[in-house]
């Protein structure tokens, strides 16, 4: 479904991705690990279409289409979801309003009718119950005054509502205490599906205790230096990233 081939990307003068190749199929869960500054978040942002990152080489196709040609909102409507590491606050904009606009933008793109307020609320309450969220969240400003855990859970709620085909979760575990981490991981697990691919971007292996990936990739200095199954994550936990970094520069 997602084919990344020798992708290079820079921000300003610094090259961050130096030739990343990755293939993700429907139903798979991939984990991308790596030290700070290795390019994990950049990869996520480039796939989502952030315009600060210039693509200087390589290709990304999604269902056979050239993804790099699409605007960020078009990618989203095509089923790509990015769970942000730092979800922004949008004061004054009701959480429900944003969600409904997002759901309807996607439905419109799919040639479906818009959901009305009643259907929307029903759906939202269902998903919130599933994620153990207080329905009051809907009436608050988007991420306004949310705790770290609430913000991340809100990202998962958006994912549940939008039912993406490809979800990239960027450091969804960062800044969470163990209870919040479990809640978020449970949410992600309920959204695992044969029709959906999930890419977890994470620094630590602890998230992978709760969400079992099919594949683990290690990114270092803008390249994937090692791929394997879940055991690779455990190995990393034990040895640190240095042994792979040496391998990359060798």
């Amino acid at each position: 479904m997602l084919e990344i081939n020798n992708l290079k990307s820079r921000i300003g003068d610094s090259e961050i991705l130096r030739g990343v190749s990755l293939s993700v199929k429907t139903g798979e869960v991939h984990a991308i690990m790596g030290p700070n500054g290795s390019g994990k978040s950049t990869l996520a942002q480039v796939v989502a279409g952030h315009e600060d990152y210039e693509v200087s080489g390589g290709s990304v196709t999604y269902d056979g289409k050239d993804l790099l040609e699409l605007e960020p909102e078009e990618r989203a409507r095509e089923g790509i979801f990015l769970g942000f590491q730092y979800p922004v606050e949008i004061p004054g904009v009701n959480n429900a309003y944003l969600l409904k606009a997002a759901v309807n933008a996607k439905r419109k793109h799919q040639g479906l009718g818009e959901v009305d307020a009643f259907e929307f609320l029903k759906l939202a309450r269902e998903k919130m119950a599933m994620l153990g969220m207080d329905p009051k969240f809907l009436n608050r400003g988007v991420n306004e005054g949310f705790s770290g855990g609430e913000k991340k859970r809100n990202e998962i709620l958006q994912m549940a509502m939008l039912e993406p085909r490809l979800a990239i979760l960027d450091e969804t575990d960062s800044g969470l205490d163990i209870d919040a981490l479990k809640a978020v991981a449970e949410g992600v697990n309920t959204l695992r599906s044969p029709d959906r691919a999930i890419v977890l971007v994470t620094h630590y292996q602890r998230l992978l205790d709760y969400i079992q990936p099919d594949f683990v990739h290690v990114l270092s200095e803008g390249r994937i230096v090692r791929s394997g199954d879940k055991s690779l994550a455990l190995e990393l936990e034990e040895k640190g990233y240095d042994w792979l970094r040496e391998a990359a520069t060798a």
């Binding site: 279409g49 909102e73 922004v88 004054g92």
Partner: peptide, 26 residues
Amino acid sequence: SADQLFYCRQRGISEEDAVNMIVNGF
């Protein structure tokens, strides 16, 4: 902010609609 706009666009909302949404919220 550019971050607010990108966040909305990543949710499938056009830039124009995102600005309207933020301004109307304000």
